[in-house]
Simulated assay, not measured.
Amino acid sequence: MPTRLHAATKPQVLGLILICLATALSLRSWAVVAFLVPVVLIQLATAPLSAHMVGRQAYRNGTLDERSLFTDELAESKETPPAAGG
Rank of each mutant, 00 (worst) to 15 (best):
A45W: 07
I42T: 12
A84L: 12
L49K: 13
I42P: 00
V13W: 01
K10T: 06
A83M: 09
V39T: 08
L14W: 04
E76N: 13
E79V: 10
L44T: 00
H6C: 08
L14E: 10
A58M: 12
Y59E: 09
T63K: 07
R4F: 06
R56N: 14
A75Q: 15
I17S: 02
P82V: 05
I17Q: 03
Q12E: 11
N61M: 13
L25M: 12
P81T: 11
A34I: 04
V33C: 01
T46Y: 04
A84Q: 10
A8G: 13
R4L: 11
T23M: 04
T9C: 10
A7Q: 14
P11R: 04
W30N: 09
F70K: 15
P11I: 03
A51V: 03
T23H: 02
P82I: 05
S29N: 05
V37R: 00
Q12W: 11
T71L: 15
P2V: 05
P48T: 03
T9F: 04
P11K: 06
T3P: 10
M53A: 14
S26L: 07
E73I: 13
A75M: 12
L18F: 03
C20F: 05
A22C: 08
R56Q: 14
V54D: 02
E66M: 14
T3Y: 12
G85P: 07
T63A: 13
A58W: 02
S29M: 01
S29V: 02
G62Y: 03
S29I: 01
L18N: 11
L49M: 12
T23R: 00
Y59M: 12
P11N: 05
T46M: 05
D65F: 06
Q12K: 08
L18D: 11
P38L: 00
L16T: 00
V33W: 00
L41S: 04
D72P: 02
L41R: 02
T23S: 06
H52G: 08
V13L: 06
A45V: 08
S29Q: 03
L69R: 05
T80R: 15
L18S: 09
V13H: 02
L36Y: 01
R67A: 15
T80A: 13
S68P: 02
L21Q: 06
E66T: 15
Q12P: 01
R4V: 06
A7H: 13
D65A: 14
V33F: 00
Q12L: 15
L25P: 01
V37Q: 01
E79K: 14
F70H: 15
R4P: 02
A51Y: 00
V37F: 04
I17V: 10
A75I: 12
T71M: 14
S77A: 14
E73D: 14
A22N: 05
Y59H: 12
L44H: 01
I19K: 06
E79D: 15
L25F: 11
L21G: 06
S77Q: 15
G86K: 13
Q57G: 09
T63C: 14
A7C: 10
L49A: 15
N61I: 04
V39N: 02
K10M: 11
L25D: 10
Y59I: 09
L16K: 01
L16P: 00
L64G: 04
S26K: 05
S26T: 07
H6K: 15
P48F: 01
P48Q: 03
A22L: 07
L25W: 07
G86Y: 08
